[in-house]
């Protein structure tokens, strides 16, 4: 298994390299460069702008720029963000951290809500609650995140007293420890709710489907026939088997951590990767864009790897190495 993981990571490194090259090219293909904002400022002379272009190496051929970036990467330097005047690595990490924090909460909420709901629906199959919850799941699955986000923010603004953007209040620094927790929790409430709605609906449907399938299996019938109490049948025998396959979903969710919520983050002004990527692409902040793509690509690969490993741990019939490096 270790061999499998190592090989997968090696392939992943090559893929990331290729992705970074493609990204580099795409940014260069787009007209204009990051100095545009300065060129439009009447109080900044052309010579200053030219000096900066020279300093940032923007006048060199693309391949030279890419080669230089690659050389720096080999030394562990991901480059420099023109716009933020800072090394990319730190910048990406700060935003990645906020996104991961948000998405961890989303995953937590999703699982805590969706699993019980799915199980409940399976047990009460075709009863009223099941039908209502299944219908709701469809609604949740279909409502576009950005639309739901706008609606919820609007309602929150109408009600008042609930923050509708950002991560902390202005007086965050002066709050007590508990106050800080509550403050951040309140700021997270809307984005978590919005992003979790879709994810929850999906997970609920899968859980319900799995549970139904398991309940139809032979051993459950046998257990029932042996006279075991119904709750034991459900919670001990069926549940475990129904949840096992779900574990892989967890890995894929992890993979979507970074890019899954970009639009909601932007609408809600959450200081995460969505904001960073939008700003970086719009300002053509070359190295930052590449850094962001690398960061989220890495998360995707790790997530898929995690999913595969969990799948293998969960189902010993799967042998590693046979699935190819997908």
């Amino acid at each position: 298994m270790l061999g499998f993981v190592i090989r997968r990571l090696l392939v992943a490194a090559l893929l990331l390299l290729a992705a970074s090259f493609l990204t580099f090219m795409m940014i260069q293909l787009a007209p204009g460069d990051y100095l545009a904002q300065l060129r439009m400022n009447p109080q900044i002379g052309d010579d200053v702008v030219e000096q900066m272009a020279e300093r940032y190496g923007l006048n060199d051929p693309v391949l030279v720029q890419y080669g230089r970036w690659l050389g720096n990467l080999a030394r562990g330097d991901m480059g420099f963000s023109f716009v933020h005047e800072r090394p990319v690595a730190g910048l990406v990490w700060e935003h990645l951290r906020n996104t991961i924090f948000l998405m961890t909460m989303v995953i937590l909420v999703t699982w805590l809500m969706a699993l019980p709901m799915g199980i409940y629906c399976a047990i009460k199959q075709n009863r009223l609650t099941d039908r209502v919850l299944s219908a709701l799941a469809f609604v949740g699955l279909s409502i576009p995140n950005f639309f739901l986000c706008l609606v919820v923010m609007w309602l929150a603004a109408e009600i008042g007293g609930i923050p509708v953007g950002g991560m902390t209040s202005a007086h965050y620094e002066y709050l007590s420890w508990g106050g800080k927790v509550v403050d951040v929790a309140l700021h997270m409430a809307i984005p978590v709710l919005v992003i979790a709605t879709g994810a929850m609906a999906g997970l609920q449907r899968v859980t319900r489907g799995n549970m139904l399938e398991v309940l139809r299996q032979q051993y459950v019938t046998t257990a029932r026939a042996r006279g075991l109490p119904e709750h034991r049948v459900i919670y001990v025998h069926a549940l475990r088997n129904a949840i096992n396959p779900l574990i892989t979903i967890f890995g894929y969710q992890f993979a979507l951590l970074v890019s899954g919520a970009a639009l909601v983050e932007i609408i809600y002004s959450w200081p995460g990767m969505g904001q960073l990527i939008l700003e970086a692409v719009l300002t053509q902040d070359l190295y930052l864009v590449v850094g962001v793509v690398l960061g989220s690509g890495l998360m995707l690969i790790l997530g898929n790897l995690l999913a595969d490993i969990l799948l293998g741990v969960n189902d010993p019939r799967i042998k590693f190495g046979e699935r190819g490096a997908s």
Partner: peptide, 19 residues
């Protein structure tokens, strides 16, 4: 296909639109 899948769709959308 793997390379395309690695690059975030949101970025692809923005970058291609810029052209």
């Amino acid at each position: 296909t793997e390379i395309i899948m690695i690059i975030p769709g949101f970025f692809l959308l923005l970058a291609l639109r810029a052209a």
